[in-house]
Simulated assay, not measured.
Amino acid sequence: METARLASLIAATVTMGLVSGLFYGFSVSVMPGLKRTDDRTVIEVMQRINVAILNGWFVLGYIGAFLFTALALALHIPEDGRGVLPPLIAALVCYVVAMGVTNKVNIPLNNVLEKAGPVGRIGDPAAVRRAFEGPWARANVWRTLLCTAAVGFLAWALYLNGQGA
């Protein structure tokens, strides 16, 4: 049982780190880089990213972070008093909130961008960009912060697990 607990904690930390890094990369490079380009470029690039990101590797990290964190929590529940439960609960809560931000803000904005159609046919690309870029980037910062906090909580849980707390 201890091997399963440790393996789930490691898997949760790795997958959460991948998702946190993805969101961080968007926050510090992709969106600031796009901010310096024209409206049509922002729309076209984000439309392409939104298609490209839907792949098995992304799903492994995105869904895996949730499943492995939930599994780690479930496997540690029988060990009352180990001290690992509070950071695991905190990590799971942070990630569920981040997933909520994704589902309520980022995905709907991605869908609106897709429905705008091919960039060459958009009559007012500046309006499409204004409706998308700022709200999407702000929501992404929240996802980044929440996932980074979750990684910190998972690292804390790993430490406590190793201490036999």
Results as ranks from 00 to 15, higher is better:
residue 1 M to G: 08
residue 5 R to I: 13
residue 6 L to M: 11
residue 8 S to G: 08
residue 9 L to S: 12
residue 11 A to Y: 11
residue 15 T to H: 06
residue 18 L to G: 15
residue 18 L to A: 14
residue 20 S to G: 15
residue 20 S to I: 03
residue 20 S to M: 13
residue 21 G to H: 06
residue 23 F to S: 00
residue 23 F to V: 03
residue 24 Y to K: 03
residue 24 Y to C: 12
residue 24 Y to I: 09
residue 25 G to I: 12
residue 27 S to R: 04
residue 29 S to I: 07
residue 31 M to P: 01
residue 32 P to V: 05
residue 32 P to Y: 06
residue 33 G to K: 11
residue 34 L to G: 02
residue 38 D to L: 10
residue 39 D to F: 02
residue 40 R to A: 13
residue 41 T to C: 08
residue 43 I to Y: 00
residue 43 I to L: 03
residue 44 E to W: 00
residue 45 V to T: 14
residue 46 M to V: 00
residue 47 Q to R: 05
residue 47 Q to M: 06
residue 49 I to Q: 07
residue 50 N to V: 05
residue 50 N to K: 07
residue 52 A to D: 11
residue 53 I to D: 08
residue 55 N to W: 10
residue 57 W to T: 13
residue 60 L to T: 10
residue 60 L to R: 08
residue 61 G to W: 09
residue 63 I to P: 01
residue 63 I to M: 13
residue 63 I to Q: 12
residue 65 A to N: 05
residue 65 A to D: 03
residue 66 F to N: 04
residue 67 L to P: 07
residue 67 L to N: 03
residue 68 F to S: 11
residue 69 T to H: 01
residue 71 L to D: 09
residue 72 A to T: 02
residue 75 L to V: 07
residue 76 H to S: 15
residue 77 I to G: 11
residue 77 I to V: 15
residue 77 I to K: 12
residue 77 I to A: 15
residue 78 P to T: 07
residue 82 R to K: 07
residue 84 V to Y: 03
residue 84 V to L: 08
residue 88 L to C: 13
residue 90 A to Q: 14
residue 90 A to I: 14
residue 92 L to H: 09
residue 93 V to L: 09
residue 95 Y to C: 02
residue 96 V to P: 01
residue 97 V to G: 09
residue 99 M to C: 10
residue 99 M to N: 05
residue 100 G to L: 08
residue 100 G to W: 10
residue 101 V to W: 02
residue 102 T to V: 02
residue 103 N to R: 10
residue 103 N to P: 00
residue 103 N to M: 15
residue 104 K to A: 13
residue 105 V to E: 01
residue 105 V to Y: 01
residue 106 N to Q: 10
residue 106 N to D: 12
residue 107 I to D: 03
residue 108 P to Q: 06
residue 111 N to V: 15
residue 112 V to D: 12
residue 113 L to D: 02
residue 114 E to V: 13
residue 115 K to F: 07
residue 115 K to T: 08
residue 116 A to C: 13
residue 116 A to Q: 02
residue 117 G to K: 10
residue 117 G to W: 09
residue 120 G to M: 05
residue 121 R to E: 15
residue 124 D to E: 14
residue 125 P to E: 06
residue 126 A to L: 07
residue 128 V to F: 06
residue 130 R to F: 12
residue 131 A to Q: 14
residue 132 F to D: 03
residue 133 E to G: 02
residue 133 E to D: 14
residue 135 P to W: 08
residue 136 W to M: 03
residue 136 W to C: 03
residue 137 A to N: 08
residue 137 A to M: 06
residue 141 V to N: 02
residue 141 V to L: 14
residue 142 W to F: 11
residue 142 W to G: 04
residue 143 R to G: 01
residue 143 R to Q: 01
residue 144 T to R: 00
residue 145 L to I: 13
residue 146 L to C: 01
residue 147 C to E: 05
residue 150 A to C: 04
residue 154 L to C: 05
residue 155 A to E: 04
residue 155 A to H: 03
residue 157 A to W: 04
residue 159 Y to W: 14
residue 159 Y to P: 06
residue 160 L to F: 06
residue 161 N to P: 08
residue 161 N to L: 09
residue 161 N to I: 07
residue 162 G to F: 12
residue 163 Q to A: 14
